[in-house]
Design a protein around this nucleic acid. Structure first.
Lengths: 207, 207
DNA sequence: AGAATATATTAACACTTGTTCATATATAAT
DNA sequence: ATTATATATGAACAAGTGTTAATATATTCT
């Protein structure tokens, strides 16, 4: 069963299809990324694709399943330790640094493009967006803000609202960066905005 | 020349095409909204469309041209008068009320969907988004924040950054609302968030 | 009224789409 | 070496795409 690649370097055909599909879906969207274009990019005939995937939708779902598997999303927002409680701003900075990293990562950028392109057309992606992107972040952040409020290190407010106010500018920045990069425009102005956001936000909530 | 409608009530075929196209583009995107589907929605054969528009792209451009003609975008953010300077929070509230109105307006929602669906595929829409949606708002708001800072009614900071922090949660909310509405989910929770945002933001910047 | 114009229809076109089938060629197992 | 399995090819399919041409039917103008 030669399912996986033989060596570490040489990619299996299935992996090649995945990579080519990710690229094409992120550039053209689902409908415009035709089976033939994918096959050409891989270097095989379109009929050969069907030895590895059931159909086109199967390819897409396989690629799309990676969207919400970001390392950031999984588990890089640990609970607030006592040391972090003594310096909560650095926690927010750490969060934003991670967010920024994901924003500028090439693979994550492709997946984000696919997400944004198909977000309004694909119900599963919408649900993933709301659950994995939004709700999960809101839950983690609001929990932290709640603790910080209880300990009196940030001003009293609705923790969920505060989480919203913290995450929204980050998402907006990420979308902005993504749009500029499509046209190969400079994002250097935006790059520093991530850190500025933390500074501004911390000034907004500290007691 | 029977170009315009005869009465005020009866729509011309061209207007019917526009309405049907706006609906279909906003639900299916450019590629999936086929000329035949549009024709069926209007109630004519597809070839008759070509008496009113050069081709499919012409229809789309005609619809898309309305996206950045929102009443909000045009001219509803007047300069800061002396009375508004004495109560700057109410100005922000007025701004957000207008933004909220646009968010929940049916026509504006359809146009916003088209924008979001084609944003990553259509360069003209990207430029429109950055110039008309983003930059224009940032310019107006940062000018206001600058004045408010000079008069010492809000805390000192970068006005552009502050404008960014103000507008981003509004956009994020609008996107959120749009996504929920596609699936006919309740947006009552989000509705009140617009006002909460102003309250939180004002607490963040007042001296 | 008839002529001119605007708008509709029917039919066809060249092309692209996703998918399937029979068949050929590698690769692995016995 | 022979068999079995995995993967490739080429051809074809039915369906859908945007667009055009010839023609018919309204509508408006004189």
């Amino acid at each position: 069963m030669p399912e996986n690649r033989d060596s570490n370097q040489i990619l299996s055909t299935k992996e090649k299809i995945m990579n080519a599909s990710m690229k094409l879906f992120s550039e053209l969207g689902y409908k415009n990324a035709s089976v033939r274009k994918i096959a050409v990019a891989v270097g095989i005939r379109e009929s050969a694709l069907y030895n590895h995937f059931k159909n086109k939708e199967d390819i897409f779902l396989c690629v799309a399943s990676e969207i919400f598997n970001s390392p950031f999303n999984n588990d890089d927002s640990p609970a607030l330790t006592s040391t972090q409680l003594s310096n909560p701003k650095s926690y927010l900075q750490k969060f934003v640094t991670e967010y920024k990293l994901v924003t500028f990562d090439k693979t994550q950028e492709s997946l984000f493009r696919i997400l944004m392109i198909e977000l309004l057309q694909n119900k599963a992606l919408r649900e993933g967006f709301l659950n994995e992107f939004h709700n999960k972040n809101i839950k983690v952040l609001s929990g932290i803000f709640f603790t910080l409020m209880q300990n009196g290190v940030v001003r009293s407010s609705d923790p969920i609202l505060m989480a919203h106010e913290f995450i929204a500018p980050l998402f907006y920045l990420r979308l902005h960066v993504t749009l500029l990069r499509i046209d190969n425009l400079s994002t250097s102005n935006l790059s520093s905005q991530f850190e500025k956001h933390v500074d501004f936000f911390w000034e907004s909530i500290k007691v």
